[in-house]
């Protein structure tokens, strides 16, 4: 995903000479091409995220379009107030990009796990929040981010993610992408968790619960229309996110409570309390119910409990 991002950004920078990239002393081997090709519009702000976000706001106030790049929570939490007051409130075209959304940085530990970012970013004024699932969605949301006249948050995975869209989907900001159509179950996924969600959908189909599957590369504004429509058609809406509380499940619950549909919610997400153990990305997902097998089991168990 990060290479899809930086390749898209270089193409955009060729066409838009107001486009800047500001990094927080991270991006080794990733940002080099941008830095080499557009040195006048590249800044390594050092290990100083508050200043990095403020400088980005200043550049944007001077008419520039700024991408801020770092990893995990670093460009989000340390400088939350700069993003809120200086960028979001002033509706400045600054896109905060993080690599390592969710549990991607596995063994690095909780300091590097971006599991509250969607909750924090989507509540800020004027903010658009993207969480692409694969390199194709990454390219599409990066292009969209470069033309939004306001603040954007872009949550990326890391590298090496499978391409899940065999051809470019009909993307629009704020619209869910449908990957398969099913019967009385609809799975809504945001971000890099889509690959196991698709595996879970295969298994559920074999088990007699063929689900619809949607990817939400735009987390906010949420595609409430599609969720509401599915809630009137389905028995259950399942939300899947590599994120804790306050994310997709919470937003979907608001939609369901107002939609008039009969569907109930099955939230699949991370617990609030972090694990006290090390582990790879795959291990941490597995331990916290985010493997394909765990998703299938949780959905089946819930449906069975409802049926009693």
């Amino acid at each position: 995903m990060r290479l899809a991002f930086v390749n898209s950004l270089c193409k955009l920078a060729e066409k838009d000479d107001r486009l800047w990239l500001v990094c927080g002393d991270l991006g080794y081997g990733v940002l080099d091409e941008f830095a080499r090709r557009f040195p006048n519009r590249f800044i390594n702000a050092g290990v100083a995220e508050q200043n990095m976000a403020g400088v980005a706001a200043g550049l944007a106030q001077a008419g520039q379009r700024v991408f801020v790049y770092s990893i995990a929570n670093f460009p989000v939490m340390r400088c939350m107030e700069q993003i809120r007051n200086d960028i979001a409130y002033h509706r400045l075209p600054v896109c905060v990009v993080t690599v390592g959304g969710g549990l991607v940085y596995g063994g690095h530990g909780y300091s590097h796990h971006g599991v509250e970012d969607l909750a924090m970013m989507h509540v800020l004024p004027n903010m658009t929040v993207f969480a692409p699932a694969d390199p194709v969605e990454t390219r599409l949301v990066t292009e969209a981010a470069a033309s939004i006249d306001g603040p954007v948050y872009l949550r990326l995975g890391r590298g090496g993610e499978a391409t899940l869209h065999k051809q470019a989907p009909a993307f629009a900001v704020g619209k869910a992408l449908c990957l398969r159509k099913g019967a009385t179950l609809a799975l809504f996924s945001t971000g890099g968790i889509l690959e196991p969600v698709l595996s879970a959908a295969e298994a559920l189909t074999v088990l007699g619960h063929p689900p619809s599957v949607y990817s939400l590369p735009t987390f906010f504004p949420l595609d409430e229309e599609t969720i509401a429509a599915e809630s009137r058609r389905c028995q259950a809406i399942v939300t899947i996110e590599e994120h804790g509380r306050g994310g997709l499940a919470a937003l979907t619950a608001e939609v369901l409570a107002q939609s008039g549909g009969g569907a109930r919610l099955i939230p699949i997400r991370l617990p609030r309390e972090p694990l006290a153990e090390s582990g790879s990305h795959a291990y941490l997902r597995e331990r916290q119910g985010l493997s394909a097998a765990a998703m299938v089991q949780h959905i089946q168990t819930t449906l069975a409990a409802w049926a009693k």
Partner: peptide, 27 residues
């Protein structure tokens, strides 16, 4: 008023961004 303020410690970074743009773009 160029920038809404009230929480302290924001203005100098935004000013640095403005000054950086001026320097790089020769404004």
């Amino acid at each position: 008023v160029e920038l809404s303020t009230g929480s302290l410690g924001h203005g100098l970074s935004v000013g640095a961004g403005l000054a950086l743009a001026a320097k790089r773009l020769n404004l």
